[in-house]
């Protein structure tokens, strides 16, 4: 029971810190700050629990005593944090499918023509912001007005290309 209670507590603490900071001011480097919050909460939280394990009790449950229990809390916390971070990345940028669905929904009973669609959804809204992201995230750099991959960008593209080769997906995706 102690693993369940203290895993949930630690995760809740990280989320509360995250929401408080976000409500005060949206950070510029959101993902880095998120990693920092979750990382520090995990290390400090586990350290605190371990040091005061004899004296801490919550909802009638004592703090974990065994090392493997701390390891289990760690795996739970990292799994949930990673799942939240990938969801967060999807929230940051507007998904084209979401934009398309909401554009159609907002047109109501009239429906939406192809022309209206193209006016609202174009390269300026779908491609250019993501190209700028590749620069800000240091995945690419500009040289004589041409985009080139940085080593980080090359590693990421290679991982996806190898994976897609393994699962035999020939279509380029996107």
């Amino acid at each position: 029971m102690s693993v369940l209670v203290f895993s949930l507590l630690l995760t809740a603490v990280a989320f509360i810190i995250h929401f408080i900071i976000w409500k005060i001011r949206l950070p510029v480097h959101q993902k880095s700050i998120l990693i920092y919050i979750f990382g520090v909460t995990l290390i400090a939280g586990l350290g605190f629990l371990f040091k005061f394990r004899e004296n801490i009790s919550l909802l009638g449950t004592n703090a974990p005593r065994e090392l493997h229990e701390y390891f289990q809390i760690c795996i739970f916390f990292i799994s949930v944090s990673l799942a939240y971070m990938v969801t967060y990345s999807a929230l940051e940028a507007d998904s084209p499918s979401l934009v398309m669905i909401m554009t159609i929904a907002n047109s109501g009973k009239e429906g939406l023509s192809q022309k209206n669609f193209e006016e609202k959804i174009n390269n300026k809204t779908l491609i250019i912001p993501r190209l700028k992201d590749t620069l800000s995230e240091k995945l690419a750099y500009l040289k004589e007005d041409k985009y080139n991959l940085t080593p980080k960008g090359r590693i990421i593209s290679t991982i996806f290309m190898i994976y897609r080769k393994i699962i035999k997906r020939e279509r380029k995706g996107g």
């Binding site: 993501r130 080139n148 991959l149 997906r169």
Partner: peptide, 16 residues
């Protein structure tokens, strides 16, 4: 899903 639908990954692939 990223490999399948993400625009950023597709752009990286085109650049690579």
């Amino acid at each position: 899903n990223l490999g399948e639908t993400a625009r950023r990954i597709r752009l990286l692939r085109e650049l690579s």
